[in-house]
Simulated assay, not measured.
Amino acid sequence: MSDTAPAARPHRLAVVGNPENRRVTHFLRAAEAAGHDRPRVVPWARVLREGGHAFADDEVVRLDSPGENAEVDLLLRGVDDPTRVEGSATWYARLLAAVRSLRGGVRLDDPDELAVLFDKRLTHARLAEAGVPVPPSPTSGGARPVRGWDEVLAAAREVGAARFFVKPAHGSSGSGVLAVETTAAGRVRATTPVEMAPDGRLHNTLRPRRLTEERAVAAVVDALAPDGLHIEQWVPKASLDGRATDLRVVVVAGRATHAVARTSRLPLTNLHLGGARGELAAVRERAGERWAEALAVCERAAARFPGTLCVGVDLLPAAGWRRFLVGEVNAFGDLLPGLTGLPGGPAEGLDTYGAQLAALPAALPLAPPLNESNEPNERPRSAHHAAR
């Protein structure tokens, strides 16, 4: 009888996502280009309808965004119009339940960390507690709920914010965000992609509009409040060619790998809301020796989520390019088609999906040996936690 240990079998890849979505197809193409067998795709709709899914112990499980699918949106938010803003608290609760219904496998996205990442108040507190620079916020940590416009205004005044952002606590992609400006004379205006229909329902549009009457701003905020709100002071951003500028920086396995500059003449820089990509070379030139500091801030933010392989950090360069703050950390922030890694970095020449695949060998635990049962373990393992 041999004392030789059984050989380990290679890991297999699986992704939970919407099969038709470009996020999933980009990942599949990157996996095949990297020499992996085609990953198994488990639709979010199936997970939600069946109340869970089981993975084999040797499957590495990537979670991708459940967005841009009408059936999945209905199952998560309970509304049948994808432009509707309401329902984000229901979306949050149902998504977390679906994530926790996944059994077995090795996770690239830690379920407990996702619960923080999808709550802007909890994310802000986790970053602030670690000394990561963030805009001042009266709602950090979620201990102070705000139930409507009057409470939002009072909370903003307590931190000395005449200009501030109001965000749905569980929103994404600029959905439901208002950039509010107030004056000592009592004037209020806001820039937002939200439009209120005559029946009082809120809808996202792709064209941000300006509300110039306080009652219109208050009506939108009051309608958003039941789903939870996060307030942040509006920090004046640095500019490129007269356009407000921020960055999306992708961090993979603790290293900043990709960055894109986003510019706009409006306070909201989201590319799908009219923002435009800026020249990253110009950003680096403006930042000068502080560029390394900017990337380090993003890596410090990502380090607060060590069980999640990849996050997208929204980095806010303050006016003058003298300091950098973290606006948000996004669990599904890697959709940057065609963008290759930073020159001289660990992902040079790779897109965001290729960078994550290249990081897997160092992040993964040893696969189960060949003579072990292939039945799934009910308890999922985290790639990063297992590697530490």
Rank of each mutant, 00 (worst) to 15 (best):
P43A: 13
W44E: 05
A45T: 15
V47W: 00
L48M: 08
R49V: 15
R49S: 12
R49H: 14
A54H: 11
A54T: 12
F55G: 02
D57N: 11
V60W: 02
V60C: 10
V61Q: 01
R62E: 09
L63G: 04
D64N: 12
S65H: 02
P66E: 03
N69T: 09
A70Q: 11
V72Y: 00
D73V: 14
R77M: 07
T83V: 08
R84E: 09
R84L: 15
V85L: 08
V85A: 02
V85E: 02
V85P: 00
E86G: 10
A89R: 15
A89I: 12
R94V: 09
V99H: 00
R100A: 12
R100S: 07
R103M: 09
G104V: 03
G105W: 05
V106Y: 03
L108V: 07
D109C: 07
D110R: 08
D110Q: 12
D112M: 12
D112W: 15
A115L: 11
A115P: 05
F118E: 00
D119K: 11
K120W: 03
R121I: 09
R121Y: 07
H124N: 13
R126G: 03
R126F: 11
R126C: 10
L127E: 02
L127R: 10
L127W: 08
A128F: 13
A128S: 14
A128P: 08
